[in-house]
Design a protein around this nucleic acid. Structure first.
Ligand SMILES: [Mn+2]
Ligand SMILES: [Mn+2]
Ligand SMILES: [Zn+2]
Ligand SMILES: [Zn+2]
Lengths: 139, 139
DNA sequence: TTCCTTATTGCAATTATTATCAATAACAAT
DNA sequence: ATTGTTATTGATAATAATTGCAATAAGGAA
């Protein structure tokens, strides 16, 4: 990947280290898009890395802003390489998805700030809903 | 609880049954507010009920609209007795919370509908952010 | 290159969550 | 009250996720 030298530097500046395990996991996410810990493990199992390392590493990389995390259905997490801030809107019936640019949540951020003084963390949301196709069928 | 006859009827109309286990779990949530499955289990363990029953029952009651579920930190779920639709905004630094009435998300619902044609499911969100006290400290 | 420090991993043990299936008990009908 | 149907639970196994610690290795310094 083209970004590995940059990420290596980023970690070193913070006193952390780049490792073959972290590189393998980054590669898996580079190839796979949004993946659960189990899916990541399947893609790196060949290297002999432990599954516990996958969990730890995903959490670590997300903590350092190198990965995005999102809460998928029923409390399950999915990770992806951090890129332009965005969110997802997925149809609960047919699974169709659309992406939302970061700015789509700015009105909510502003409104919550006005109402409560809280500044919303705009991370990487996955919203559920009904797509235009399924919406009419629902009732 | 005062609502148990109504809930019993609700379940029967759908072909389900009220049981001592379900009543105990409802009581625990009545007393405890927002609880994780483990916290619910602690409160009903005295009855001898299995922990697996707690998980199943929480999922079942939420599926039937009797409980609200929400995604708390790192993919962990919390349940509460369904009441007036609302959401939560919690400070990621000090943990301070404010509640949001259902209408607080209506602008987002409308905006997403306009932009994408998707109708957002407005369930029971827990948003993270910085409270007015912690906000200035964050640089 | 070699040596040190210590961040990181492997490994094993816990804990959390889900799945299976036979035994139980709600509750509707008699 | 008794019976029959079957939703529900207990019990156990399987799977997912977390934790603790000793062994390993990244990478800065000599
Ligand atoms: Mn994404
Ligand atoms: Mn709530
Ligand atoms: Zn759809
Ligand atoms: Zn705060």
């Amino acid at each position: 990947m083209s970004c590995t030298p940059r990420l290596t530097q980023l970690l070193r500046l913070r006193g952390f280290r780049m490792t073959p395990q972290r590189l393998a996991i980054l590669q898996a996410l580079h190839d796979g898009g949004h993946l659960s810990p189990g899916q990541v493990y399947k893609r790196v199992a060949q290297t002999g890395m432990m599954e516990t390392t996958v969990y730890r590493t995903l959490d670590f990389l997300a903590e350092n802003g190198i990965l995005f995390v999102t809460n998928r259905a029923k409390g399950h997490l999915a990770y992806e390489l951090a890129r332009a801030s965005h969110h997802h809107l997925v149809c609960r019936t047919c699974g169709a998805q659309v992406d939302l640019e970061r700015e789509a949540l700015q009105p909510l951020v502003d409104q919550l700030f006005q109402r409560t003084g809280y500044r919303l963390d705009v991370g990487h949301f996955t919203f559920s809903g009904l797509c235009p196709v399924c919406l009419p069928d629902s009732e």
